[in-house]
Design a protein around this nucleic acid. Structure first.
Lengths: 155, 155
DNA sequence: ACAATAAAAGATAAATTTATCTTTTTATCT
DNA sequence: AGATAAAAAGATAAATTTATCTTTTATTGT
């Protein structure tokens, strides 16, 4: 019934845009030496170039990345990977909002969530916590056989 | 950047359609005596009637609810609330899919997720587990001041 | 200053999800 | 059998997200 909101989180959870943002940031974290153009990042992460441009713009506005115009310009991470929670990246493009009041706008409920919405909100909170406590640095240091977003060099 | 995918899970997580499905099912669980028409459920849960009709159709196809045509017909739960995990409701309309292979289709990754996607998949799995282990019965028995989906009678 | 590079901004289009309306089919009651 | 009720199915439209293209603005190097 839904499209892939995100290839990334299966079908649930976060938007395509958020996955793009995460890919871009992880991509930048792996090449921290110099600025990278939108075109370069697009090639590395396989995100559509012109759409990525919008995504990077939002990341820049939220100071997740730093942009530099003109020759030799491009994007760099604004903070070291260890200090950049995934949540910040997600929140820059597609903020996670908790359920603060009844989605049905029931007057007697108000800020007092019913069991359904409380349960759902608990799930949100848990997910949010996971994204808050894991940084770009964290996931880059987790052991795996695959280099994030990149083809392996050796065959 | 995204609409409310779902009022319910904030902005992240599951679709509007899934929330509608959950509301309908919880609504039916609270009135288990007789079949309820789409119009009735729509009124109770504040889901757009004609859209709800499609949602109920899918729930029926996945045997989450049971439908009866004609006079005195309508929808009822196909199983007791205690035996109906929220996951089944969600999966009927908008299945949760784990990330089984690299969303970037990198050949060297294949089924071997990179750290980013592994991390994301861990989150999916956790969420899925929560929805699997909590049934409609569970959430109805959780203590709250608000009756799920309904205005409170007493003032 | 001028040319080249790259982000920023704007406009438009495609795809998908959500919503509405109408017609058809199936069941129930008298 | 005929009338009524309600789901099922079909067609269409609105809203939102995702994607693409073009123009403008800012920066660097010569």
């Amino acid at each position: 019934m839904s499209r892939s909101f995100l290839s990334l989180i299966g079908e649930i959870m976060i938007s395509q845009t958020s996955e793009y943002a995460l890919r871009a940031v992880v991509g930048l974290a792996q090449n921290p030496d110099k600025p990278h153009t939108t075109a370069e990042i697009a090639r590395l992460t396989k995100v559509p170039e012109h759409y990525l441009s919008k995504v990077l713009l939002m990341l820049a506005k939220h100071e997740v990345v730093f942009s530099k115009k003109g020759l030799h310009g491009g994007y760099m991470l604004a903070h070291p990977p260890e200090q950049l929670p995934l949540l910040n990246v997600i929140n820059a493009v597609d903020p996670i909002k908790q359920i603060n009041s009844c989605p049905l706008k029931l007057k007697t409920h108000g800020t007092n969530l019913c069991r359904l919405h409380k349960r759902l909100n608990d799930s949100i909170a848990l997910m949010e916590e996971m994204f808050r406590t894991s940084t770009v640095g964290t996931i880059l240091s987790e052991p795996t056989k695959s280099i994030p977003l990149c083809e392996s060099i050796k065959k």
